[in-house]
Each structure stands twice: as structure tokens, then as C-alpha cells.
Design a protein around this nucleic acid. Sequence first.
RNA 1: GCCGAGGUGGCGGAACUGGUAGACGCGCUAGCCUCAGGAGCUAGUGCCCGCAAGGGCGUAUGGGUUCAAAUCCCGUCCUCGGUACCA
Length: 848
Amino acid sequence: MTTERTRIERYEPAAIEPRWQARWAELGLHRTDLADTSRPPYYLLTMYDYPSGNLHVGHWYVKTPTDAFGRFRRMQGHNVFFPVGFDAFGLPAENAAIRNRIHPAQWTYSNIANMRRQLRSMGAGFDWDAEVVTCDPAYYRWNQWLFLRFLERGLAYRATAPVDWCPNDGTLAREQVEGADRRCWRCGAKVEKRDLAQWFLRITRYADELLDFTGIDWPEPVRVMQTNWIGRSEGAEVVFRSAPDTHIPGGDEIRVFTTRPDTLFGATFMVLAPEHPLVEKLTSPGQRPVVAAYIEQARRETEIERLNTERDKTGVPIGADAINPVNGERIPIWVADYVLGGYGTGAIMAVPAHDERDFAFARQFDLPIREVIRPVATYGEDRDLVEAYVSKTPDDVLVNSGRYNVMAAPDAIRAITADLEERGEGKAAVSYRIRDWLISRQRYWGTPIPVVHCEACGIVAVPDADLPVLLPETVDYAGSGENPLGRDAAFLHAACPRCGGPARRETDTMDTFMDSSWYWFRYLSSRKDDGPVDRAMLDRWTPVAQYTGGAEHAVMHLLYSRFFTKAMADCGLVGHREPFLRLFNQGQVLGADGERMSKSRGNVEDPDALVAQYGADTVRLFLMFMGPWDQGGPWSPTGIGGVARFLNRVWTLVLDPHGHEPGDAEAGRLPTGEDAAAAEKAIRGAAHRTLAAVTADYEGFRFNTMVAKLMELANVLFRYRGTEVAGGPAWDEAVRLLLLMLAPAAPHVSEELWERRHAAAGTAWSSIHLERWPEVDAAAAAVATRELPVQVNGKVRDRVEIAVGLSAAEVEALVLARPKVVAALGGATPERIIHAGGGRLVNIVVRG
RNA sequence: GCCGAGGUGGCGGAACUGGUAGACGCGCUAGCCUCAGGAGCUAGUGCCCGCAAGGGCGUAUGGGUUCAAAUCCCGUCCUCGGUACCA
């Protein structure tokens, strides 16, 4: 016998994917009509990328599920806006330029061209018309414009801050300094810190508002990280004064911030940060050399080093004392690197008995430790502290604290603060860890800060009409000594906009986090040339409904974006105060070696090769199938073949329902005991149950189980392939649902098969991506019987097929008659029978 | 150190609010089909004992709560991410 085998065309992704991409582009399928009000708007945003040159699978891992979600939302009837752009300013371009003698712009734009091609090959539904490239003057012009608005409102200001400085090369940003020993990446010289006047944005003005996350649905870990970053703490500011000495008259105010004013009597010394302005003034002549040497050393350390708890404490006494305002006691003043110049007041009162760091310091240098607070039960006992006692309970009481003895700690905090305030020696205060945002960069490839320094008028803003202040095309960015922009005479010299006199342009450029702090607003009017944003568009489309991106941006980018939104709202540019309503942080795909993917490690996975081998749909689906999206993990293509096989099976199901594989003896026959009607019912049931589950999975970003459920449905259909119900109405409905559910995730193959179905049926084609998301038929999805596990004392002893909707009594009668249950009971009388989880299982409890 | 997330078969992972542990896929085994196959189809596959029926053990680890724990609580070990001596 010769089996007549249907020869169907093979599934060749390389043949169909580019064709559909071109067709969609022609149809403008992904161009969002922002003015369309007939459907609810849905702004879907994924973090834009730095144009490093090549997309790796990590980029796909972020973008692919986001794209699938956008397509899903669109099928649900939303007008989805899903833009893309490039975070195109930044250091790598400048470094590449120096290394390869190629202009940063040329390097950047050629990378962008390549990445556009790669992004298109994914088949993602980006709206390219809205694209933003931040190094384009049409974009950075508005960075400058916004900066000027902030300047007007006192949100931008100039202050002195240290930068890493290479004595050979000129100034360096932190990211250019490599290695623990702080050497210049170019010449290897030891880097120093040097103070420079730089520009800041006053994010601290919004510190309290940034602590408030009401109204936005963000992951708990991100909220915690931002909260800790802002670091609000309540306490008191206390004024100590320098004591008169042979070298100083005394009386200088030394302000400290403390969260525990109740421990003031336990202060046995003071510590100033090496940066503290009074160090110079108060240091005794005898201590000058050692203090100067210590400061020199501290200035070379990174903040992370200084903040390492494990490290032995270092410090030196400055040879002067301070007077404790509560008891008039003289205590020595030290300088130590564990106190930071930038936090609080840059000075602390040290209470070794009740602070671990102060305790370690006191032990190291043999300074007195005086206990002033202890649990009430030990009041009056003699005891020695072997470690700092950090009081946390409100029941603890004060000792060795004069008239505050026996007072409970919280009462003492209030009383001591109030008494200090009365005497003008302190007040209740709030301190924040967050500092203002330093936006100055001493580089070429960034947005020029639009001010001039006039000899007569000082700092003068460039008028709006003169924006943008363009980056000069050719400058010597490789040279050394000062800012690249300062080496361009034509750029540098300008007329003062106010007096017309000679002025010097600002030569700092902006931190690239400026660009990314408002880019999603610009997407909505990327070509607008009379303002940064279109308020009417913003009112319709923002806040962003859903933002996706990596957790590495949990603090900086996301916090700056929130700050910008609030600041822009205060400038009247935006009508709301939070940028992103819902945030999802996906995990990171690591290289096969478990390390972060990077060119230098050589563990970068090239998506182009995978696409060439398997096609974009398989790669997309595999990335979703790998695991839960928020987890990521080491890249391993093991298993991608399973996904490819699945798409092949879908292909076969759609194009060849009647064929069957010669290797399957059972093929072409219905399962035993099932007639055609039962088979059709089973198929419809499976399809609609899958639809319900898949819908919920898309909604909850559970793409891995979504794919698994589609595979299960395909497996069910395959079982019926070649039988009398294959190609029938139930089958046809199931296949239709399968394609619709697959469309967001694997857009090309589902579109191709959709078209072929139309062709076969002789109906007019329209894109599957414009179809409405199907509705679940609850009746079809319902099940008549189900398997009921029966436990005896919590162990499963039997499984019974029961009709849905039986009463508890009926179930019990049925279950207790089962031989296996009888055997498991061994003659014992059930003590009670639990019907758990809404009848999901039965547990018979027998006391033994 | 601290904060956050996590630890489930040979592997990636599933298990929604405590209720059938291991869905789906990879890999492996057997059979079918094929000139052949690293293609396709079907079946099996947590571990141990057993021909089988069946039984025992199992979610890093030690306790606990519960009729019932991967899930909740306490302790320990390990991995990953973040990082602040924050006064």
C-alpha cells in the first residue's frame, strides 16, 4: 500500500519574515495615530538603548515580551503607542573617537543604523516615526531649554564639587577612572580629586515628594531602593563650640546632626570629615603635618572605600577640643574618613557606647566610652559594654545624663531637643542622604550647558531664541588640560546676551541622564520645533501606562525621571507628577559564563546568527519561554530547538490537518471510547480553556507559561490530526484561536498562516494583528468531570473521576466505598473528612 | 557588614490566595517511519525497593505551625543583584 502523503511547503522563516516586515511597514501597521480618540490610548514604553553598535540577546530579552504585550493590548482594542529611540550621547563614543580617530557623531550614527536594522529584524511593532535620537540638536536643544527653565526657578545652580583629576590629562569623569588604585585609564597616573565649580539640579527640593509612591504601581524592591537612596532621617541639629586653646580663641560653631539626641551625654569625642571647612582653622600647629597628610590620603579614597565597615578605622586628632552643650564638657576633636563631607553637616558627635562605628573608633584609639542608655531592667547595675548598644526599644532609659536620668529614651529625645532649642543650641531637624544632582561633565559628546560667563554680568543664560547652543563639529576632544569645548576658540568666545561685552561660554556638557529624564514626553511630538513637548498630547497620552526595563536603573534613571516630571509639572509643562504608572523590571540575561554580557568578556550572544538559523519568531518565543521574565539568568540556547519544533507543528496543523505521520500507528483514529461529537467537544474545551489561561498570562507578564499553554493546545490538536474531526468546525475554531493567541508573540508565522487560511477559504485578507482578541466561551471551557485526589492523613491514596457539582455528602459516599481508600483506612473510623480548596481534594483524617 | 531576590529531576523551569510536586520544553531510552538522518511521529522518563500490584523517600538544610507546607514561622548554609559606616 502506498500512503498518499501530502507534501506541504516547509516552514522557512527566512522566506516569510522579511516579507511581512516590509508589508507591515507599507501598511503603516505600527504607526500610531496619536490623534485617534476612538480607542483608549495605551502608552507602552521600554527603556531606549545606548547605541553601542550591536544588539545582543539581552536587548531582545527586554524588548520582545514588551512588544508581545503591546500587540496583545492592541488586539484588545487599545490604541497602543510603542516608540523607540537612542540614548546617543555618552562617553563610549568619545573614547572610540579618540582610539579610532573617528568623529563621535559618525561612530554613533553608524551604530544607530546597524541597530535600527537589527531592531527591525525582530519584527517588533515600534513606531519609528516617533524615534528620538538624543544627540540630534533637535532633541538636545530642549535639554537646554529645560535647563534654562530650571535655572529660572532656582532648580539649577552652580557650586563647587570635586572631580577626579589626572595630573597629565586634565579632568576626568569617574567612569574613566579604572581599578581600585584609582589610576587614569589613559596614562595610568594616580588620579587626584580637584574642586571645580559645576552645575547641579536641586532634586533635594523634591525629596519628600519622591518618597511618596501613592498612585503608581511599582515593584516593592524599587520603592525600597529609592526610599533608601533618599534616606530621610529625623533627629536634631546640635551646636557644639570649639573650646578656647593656646592656638584658638574658641567659640566656633560646629553643627552636628544626630538621630539620637538622647545620647548627647555619651558624646566623648567629635569627628569632622576631612573635607570639613573648620578642620583647617581648628587644627593646632603641632598637629598640622599629620592632619594634612591624613586629609591628602583620604582625598584619594573612593566613597565606597570610606564607607566599608570591615575596614579598620583611621583618623587623627586635630589638637583641639569642643564643648558639649548639654554638660559643658570638653571633648577632643578628631578628623576621620568614616565621616563624609557630603552627608549631614560633615561632622558628628561620637557616642561610642551606642553607635557601632563610633565604638570601633573609640576602641581603636582608646577613647572613653560612656554608657548613657540601657534597658530599664538593668538600671543601676554595674556592667561593661563589650559592643555598642544600639537602643531600639522605647522602654530603654537614660543613665549618666544629669537631670534626664531615668527618662524613657523617646521622651528624652523630645526633652533634650526642646531644651537645646530654648537655649539656641540646637533644633529638631530632618536630614537626607540624597544629594543634589551633579549634571556637569567635562566632556565633548554631550549637551552644551547654555550659559555664558560675562566679565561684567557674571553668569548669563543664553536666550531661548539663540538655542540650540550647537556642539562645534570639530574640536580637539583627545587633547588634555581642560574641557574639549574650551579648546575651540570659535565656540568659547561669545558676546554677552545682556551687555554685549566679551563673554566665555560654559564648556561643561550635561550628564546623559538629563536626556533620559524626559525622552518619553518627546516621543509624542518628536519633531515639534517650538517647544519641548505638546501639552495636549501629554494630557491624552501620559503618564506612561507601562514601562519596562532593567533593574539596574532602579534608582538613578527612574528617580531622575520622577524628579523631572515633578519639576516640569511645576513649570507648567506637564499636567501630572509621576511619569510611569506601572513599572516592570525584567531580569538580566547573563553570558553563558554567568557574567554580565560585555564585549570585553567576549561572552556576547549575537542575535543575528540566531535569527539566521531559526528565524525571529523562534528567537522571540524562546526568549519568552526560557523562564520567568523578571528573573533572567545565564544564556543557554539549549531548548531553542523545542520552540522551533513547536512552530513547525503549528505550521503543519494549519496547512495539513488531514495528513498523518507514517510512524504513528494510532494516527488517524479517535481516542478509544470517543466519538466525533466527544472529540469536537474536547477540542473546543481545550481551546477555550487555553484562551482563558493565555489571556491571564499575557496580562500578568507570565510569558513562559503562556508559551507552554500554547504548546499544550498544539499537542491536543496534533492528537486529532488525520482523524474525522480534523479540519472540522471545532478544529477550525481551535486553530483560529491558536493563531490569534500566538500572534503577539510570533507575529510573522501567525500572519503568514492567517493569510493562507484566508486564501484557502477564499476570503479577503486583513492582518491578524488588527483582529480583536477573542472572547472565552465559558460554556465550551467548562468541564463535566474531574479527577479528585483522595488523601488519608494527608497522603494521596486514590484518585477518583467525579462529576462536577456533587455535594460533599455524595463525594464522601463515593470516596469511602473505594477499595484503595478502604484499604488505606485499615478498618479505622474517619475522625473527620476535609473538603479542601473548594472541593479540589478530600482528606480523610484518622487519628492513629 | 547591610538591604533585596532566590535555592524544586541530568538541565531551563511549572505549581494563582497553604490543598494531586515536577505542567511545558531540553536531554535521555524504546518503537515507528525513512536510502539515510543530528528530520518527523508515538510512548516512557524525580529517586529507591519490586516481575507487577504496590510501597517508601523526595522542593538547599535543621526545627516548628497545620487535617494538609515548595508555599507560613524560627535557625543555619549557599547563590545572585544592589550598596549606603548616613550620624
